[in-house]
């Protein structure tokens, strides 16, 4: 077991973890932040996307020990008193149905727009090709990201 310290959604945690523990399992099981979902085991779906030191990462592809000393934001920490514009846009545009891919999708999209505020539809589609959604056909997700980019 190895001790790690991370700041998640503004709160500091020190925990003993197995070296092999995936960051997503650390977030979900150790910290009980279950908003981050798991939908595959090959880093293909993006459901577990979070922000790690300012970058959108698939948290199934990072070990918890690699995150030692890092600052993380999960879907639970995105709203800041009121909904983040990306959350609001997903709601406004019906960008979700079953909601399972949504946290990862919102986290990926929020970073996308932050990095490229003038984002085009083609760039949105390309930027989200690492996040799978089985319900929406992406149309309203793309519309939501476009709305948030304008917000």
């Amino acid at each position: 077991m190895t001790a790690i310290n991370v700041v998640v959604n503004g709160k500091s945690y020190t925990r003993e973890v197995e070296p092999r523990l995936l960051l997503v399992d650390f977030i979900r099981d150790t910290l009980s932040l279950t908003g981050t979902n798991i939908a595959c085991d090959t880093s293909q779906c993006g459901a577990c996307t979070i922000h790690l030191d300012g970058q959108a990462v698939k948290s199934c592809t990072v070990l918890a020990v690699q995150a030692d000393g890092s600052t993380l934001t999960t879907i639970e920490g995105l709203a800041n008193g009121k909904l983040h514009p990306m959350q609001q846009a997903f709601w406004d545009q019906h960008g979700l149905q079953c909601g399972y891919c949504t946290p990862g999708m919102i986290m990926a999209a929020a970073k996308l727009v932050e990095e490229n505020p003038e984002i085009t539809e083609a760039e949105i589609r390309h930027g989200l090709e690492g996040n799978l959604c089985r319900c929406t056909g992406y149309q309203n997700i793309v519309a939501a990201v476009a709305q948030a980019a304008k917000a």
Binding site: G35, N37, Q87, W91, H94, L96, G99, Y100
Partner: peptide, 19 residues
Amino acid sequence: VKRKEDPRFIQGRGKYVAN
């Protein structure tokens, strides 16, 4: 009408079995 269920999903509060 906008969905009543969405606020929980967009904030990571979905009540899925695995949670």
